[in-house]
């Protein structure tokens, strides 16, 4: 794709996955698509995200809780993406997150969450028939910017683990139609909580919490032109282990947090301001475990300059 695109390369932003107990940027933005900045192109952007739920999965059981009502997580994310070469990009993003509950007494929390640094490399592309197949690899590191409170879920802004992820993305475009399949294996560090012990399938006399690794997957299908992308998308997050929230207990960082969402996103370059892209989208959680059944709305602006 890179070769086909000129300076007005479409900057493609995917929804940062809004984990509905925790907003995570572990697979944010362009990490899960096949779009690359050309050499010396620099893209900067700001996105706002609004995620809310009034039902959550306690283990596998969907329930509401009038002592929380609707829990809302909002974030503003600063994102930058630089093309070292046409095939090698570096991405960094930093989100500021704040939470609140509409009912009950639980206090919202806010703060800078986890910085995400990714190296993205398109290592293979070929023509297949009239279309083009690209294969992209990505290595990402996510780590908390501060020691925020991670044991006050669902109000916590993050889980506090440092994650290293390896991702593979396949993209096929034919004419204006495209499809993308991407998957990341995420190694998560254990986390430290403020309590000196905790119950998770038995009592643990330590402040260390085991964080099982995760698999993030996404699938896009839609149209992609020079100045417009419209796509339907499915996201899945799967956690390899972890505990269930017990009946009427609070969620816990070490829970098995799984979710699947479906949604649609649009990216459009404004005709009257060159290089300025507007993005927007909506995603709806349709299945999950130990997470909120959230609705997520995203909007953002990106500006690309060539250095």
């Amino acid at each position: 794709m890179t070769a086909q695109m000129n300076k007005r390369t479409v900057f493609h932003l995917t929804t940062a996955l809004v984990l509905s107990f925790v907003y995570s940027t572990a697979k944010a933005q362009t990490v899960d698509d096949a779009i690359m900045m050309n050499k010396k192109q620099w893209c900067n952007g700001l996105t706002y995200m609004h995620s809310s739920w009034n039902q959550y999965w306690e283990g596998a059981k969907l329930r509401s809780n009038p002592n929380m009502g609707t829990v809302t997580t909002q974030s503003v994310m600063l994102m930058t993406n630089y093309g070292i070469t046409d095939k090698l990009n570096v991405l960094v993003n930093v989100p500021y997150v704040w939470t609140q509950a509409s009912q009950g007494t639980l206090h919202g929390l806010q703060g800078f969450q986890d910085i995400d640094v990714d190296v993205k490399y398109e290592f293979y592309s070929t023509k297949i028939g009239k279309g083009k197949l690209s294969i992209i690899g990505l290595v990402g590191l996510t780590t908390p910017l501060s020691k925020y409170e991670n044991d006050f879920l669902p109000m916590s802004i993050g889980l506090g683990s440092t994650n290293l992820s390896g991702r593979l993305t396949l993209d096929y475009q034919k004419g204006i139609f495209f499809t993308t399949l991407s998957s990341a294996y995420v190694f998560r560090s254990n986390v430290t909580i403020d309590a000196t012990s905790y119950y998770a399938d038995g009592i643990h006399y330590t402040n260390q919490v085991y964080m099982p690794n995760q698999l993030y997957s996404n699938f896009f299908v839609g149209i992609r032109k020079t100045n417009l992308t419209v796509q339907a998308q499915v996201y899945n997050m799967y956690t390899f282990g972890g505990t269930d929230i017990r009946t009427n207990d609070f969620p816990f960082p070490g829970n098995q947090m799984n979710m699947t969402s479906v949604g649609a996103h649009v990216k459009y370059f404004l005709p009257f301001i060159p290089n300025l892209e507007v993005i927007g989208g909506a995603d709806f959680t349709v299945a999950g475990k130990n997470m909120g059944k959230s609705q997520m709305y995203t909007g953002g602006l990106f500006y690309i300059v060539s250095l």
Binding site: E149, A195, Y199, D249, F250
Partner: peptide
């Protein structure tokens, strides 16, 4: 949080 000792704790 350290002294919460609430639901689900000892």
């Amino acid at each position: 949080t350290k002294w919460a000792d609430g639901v689900g704790t000892y």
